[in-house]
Design a protein around this nucleic acid. Structure first.
Lengths: 180, 180
DNA sequence: TTAATGTCTATCGTTTTAGTAGATTTAACG
DNA sequence: CGTTAAATCTACTAAAACGATAGACATTAA
């Protein structure tokens, strides 16, 4: 049975130019624009946090080029999750609710985008089995995704605003677990 | 200036029942349903690959409870990316295009969902700067996301169908880098 | 009281996701 | 050759998520 010969596999492109399109397009997959804005905002607050002053939404919006109204919603979420504090009224504004070294990238991302895990059944903070799952305990997809989540969480929960600010200013070494 | 007292932080819920809602809802974030189907399909083919036989789409669909027509599209993508081979016509069907130990979870996920990186500027296979990026080289978000991507890729590219099948059958040890 | 500020609620257009339907091509077999 | 069993291609659709916007409302300092 020599049928291997007639099998259709990947078309190895005869000319490479063929591969020049955007197959796979522009899927964001994971970090939403919203979470990216959140990180930028929080990072800005981190730079300011020394001078005990509150920072205006308007200022954050302008400096980071984030749509004002959209940013408002983001900041409210971060406040509800205990990452930011705010005061309303005249002289109001925002600031970080905790010291720089106690706010991680993971905290911010979870606040805006939800669990870090690629799939709910691999989440440690928001576990939920797939509706069509046959056996949660032996599922090898879940197993791999859990490992992936842990690896990612290890990075994102270990990397704090303090680290980012330090890195940005070029002072201080990068933590050991993040060596390249 | 005692303004810390009047700051609004996270509302520590007075009654815990309040927290019973689904804030954060059901965002998939990363692994799409489609990619999950793809992994299930490929895993099934991996179990069958010994007996040189081709497997019907219909059979995969039924066994894995995947909508038939949707599955077709998935298998075509996997074939185009060189993960599967197929033959049409009578006695047609699908099978893996490479040995089990040369197809990783990362391969399958990339084929269906695109780059593993949480954000394009952190992708090694599909790099692209953010349109609003001020400085790609010093961006600390990109930096963190790159580390997260690498950690995740290390897991998903290292975990192959061979590993998954071995694990499923309870024989053979889990590779060192995946020790818990 | 007023002006400056954050907060809440509702809405909206676009893109992505998940899925469906039907016509078409290919290969085996008699 | 004709039939039949398969994959494949093209087009469409409903629902959700995403990114944003608008406007009324609540709070605080001066």
């Amino acid at each position: 049975m020599q049928r291997a010969l007639s099998l259709r596999g990947a078309q190895t492109p005869v000319v490479e130019v063929v591969r020049a399109d955007f197959s796979g397009s522009d899927k964001t997959r994971m970090l939403s624009q919203k979470a990216k804005y959140a990180l930028r905002a929080v990072l800005l607050l981190a730079e300011r946090q020394e001078d005990e002053e509150l920072v205006l939404i308007a200022e954050i919006a302008e400096r980071e080029q984030i749509p004002r109204k959209f940013l408002e919603a983001i900041l409210v979420e971060l406040r509800k999750d205990g990452i930011l504090e705010s005061r309303r009224g005249k002289n109001g504004g925002y600031r970080l609710a905790r010291p720089l070294d106690r706010i991680s990238f993971g905290d911010v991302i979870r606040s805006i985008d939800g669990p870090l895990a690629p799939i709910r059944c691999a989440s440690r903070t928001q576990f939920q089995p797939c509706t069509d799952c046959q056996d949660v305990d032996t599922c090898s997809i879940r197993w791999a995704m859990t490992k992936a989540r842990d690896a990612m969480a290890n990075v994102l929960d270990g990397w704090t605003l303090a680290d980012a600010v330090r890195q940005r200013h070029g002072i201080g070494a990068i933590p050991l677990n993040f060596a390249v």
